[in-house]
Computed example of a mutant assay.
Amino acid sequence: MGENSKIEWCAHTFNPWIGCTKISPACDNCYAAAWDARWGNSWGPHVRRRTSAANWRKPLAWHKAAAAAGERHRVFCASLADVFDNDRSITSGWRGDLWHLFHRTPNLDWLLLTKRTQNIARYLRPEEYGDLPKWGDGWPNVWLGTTVENQEEADRRIPQLLAMPAAVRFVSAEPLLGPVDLTPHLCPKQWSCDFGAESGGGSARGTIPKLDWVIVGGESGPRARPMHPDWVRGLRDQCQAAGVAFFFKQWGEWGPPKPYPIPAQPGEMTRFTVATSSDSKRVGATVWRVGRGLERQSEFMDRKGKRAAGRMLDGRTWDGMPEVMREGRADA
C-alpha cells in the first residue's frame, strides 16, 4: 500500500482508497485493475474501498523521517486510484481527511496524477474541509499531473491541468501509445483580450503557464503494447529545447535490442509495422523518409521483460527533475 516505492520518480506511494474505472486507452491493460482482480473488488463504478487506519498513519512517519534528515520525500498519491475520481462511493470525508494529511506533512511533496483533469477545479477546495487554507496559488507541497498516452488526450487534458495553479505541473506519458507533440505546453504563453463598448470596455491580460516536468514510460505486463523509440526521443528533444525536465522511467515489456539502433534523422516520420516474428517476441518499426518515396529504415523492439529492457535511452539514463527540485529543495 505504500513506502519504499519501486516507482523510479518517487520515494513512497500512498493509497487513501483503492478502486477506479477505465476511461481511456491508457487504461486498457491497467496494472492496478489486474492487481485488484486478484486481491480486491474495487474496479468499476461505486465500489471504492478506503484503506486502513494503519496505512493512513504511514505518511506521518515518512514526514517525521524526512524532517529529521532535513530532506523532502516525494509521495505518489494514488497508485491504485484517482484522487480526482468523482465516483459517488468516495465520500467528502475521505477527501477531507486526505487534504488534512497533506497539510500535516509539509516535508512530503504529494504528487497527484489524474486522468480526470476536468474534475480538478471541483475538488481543489480544501477550505471546505474544516480549518484549512484555501488552494489559492497552490499548496507548496502538492504537485498536479496528468496522464497523456496519445495526442488526443494530451490536447484535452493538458489545458485543463495548466488552468489550475500548482507548485509543479507535470505529465506522465505512460504508457506512451503514439507520438505526442507537447511543444505548445512547454513554454509560458501570454494572452490578452480587449472588451468592446457593449461589454463596458477595458481589457484583460494574463499568462498560461508551462509544464514543469515530463515523465515517459512504456507499458509493462503480459498484454503490453510496444513503444517506438522515436516517440520517446521526440519528447526528450522537445523538453531539451524548451529547458523542461525530462524523466525516462522505463521501456516496459518491449525494449530496443543492443546495440541500440541509430535514431531516425530529423524530418522523418515513424510508425510501427503490423508484422511480428513467428514467436511474437519481436515487433518491427518502420521509419518512412518524407519525400523519398518508399525508402525506409527498420527498427525493432524485442519482448524481453521490464527488468531486462531497463531504462536506458540512447546509451544513458534521463532523470530530470522539475526546477523546484534543482533550486535546493532536497530529495530522497
Rank of each mutant, 00 (worst) to 15 (best):
M164G: 02
P165S: 09
A166P: 00
A166L: 00
R169M: 00
S172C: 07
A173Y: 06
A173S: 08
P175A: 06
P175K: 06
P175Y: 13
L176W: 10
L177E: 06
G178W: 04
P179S: 09
P179G: 11
D181M: 02
D181A: 02
T183S: 01
P184I: 09
P184N: 07
P184Q: 15
H185D: 01
L186C: 02
L186A: 03
C187E: 14
P188Q: 15
Q190H: 14
W191H: 04
W191F: 12
W191S: 03
S192Q: 14
S192A: 14
C193K: 08
C193Y: 10
C193W: 02
D194Q: 12
G196A: 10
G196W: 03
A197L: 00
A197D: 10
E198Y: 11
E198W: 14
S199I: 02
G200E: 04
G200L: 06
G202E: 04
G202I: 01
G202N: 13
S203K: 14
A204N: 08
A204Q: 13
G206V: 12
G206C: 05
P209F: 12
P209D: 10
K210T: 05
L211N: 01
D212R: 03
W213D: 04
W213N: 06
W213V: 05
W213C: 05
W213T: 11
I215T: 04
I215S: 00
V216D: 05
G217P: 01
G217L: 02
G218S: 05
G218Y: 09
G218N: 07
S220K: 03
S220F: 04
G221H: 08
P222H: 07
A224M: 02
R225W: 07
R225E: 06
R225V: 06
P226G: 11
M227G: 07
H228Q: 09
H228S: 09
P229L: 13
P229V: 13
D230W: 13
D230K: 08
D230A: 11
W231C: 05
W231P: 04
V232Y: 15
L235I: 11
R236M: 14
R236V: 07
D237M: 10
Q238P: 04
C239K: 08
Q240H: 14
A241R: 15
A242E: 09
V244K: 08
A245R: 08
F246S: 09
F246G: 13
F246H: 15
W251V: 08
E253T: 12
W254I: 11
W254D: 10
G255S: 11
P257F: 15
Y260G: 10
Y260T: 14
P263Q: 14
P263C: 14
A264E: 11
A264P: 04
Q265H: 13
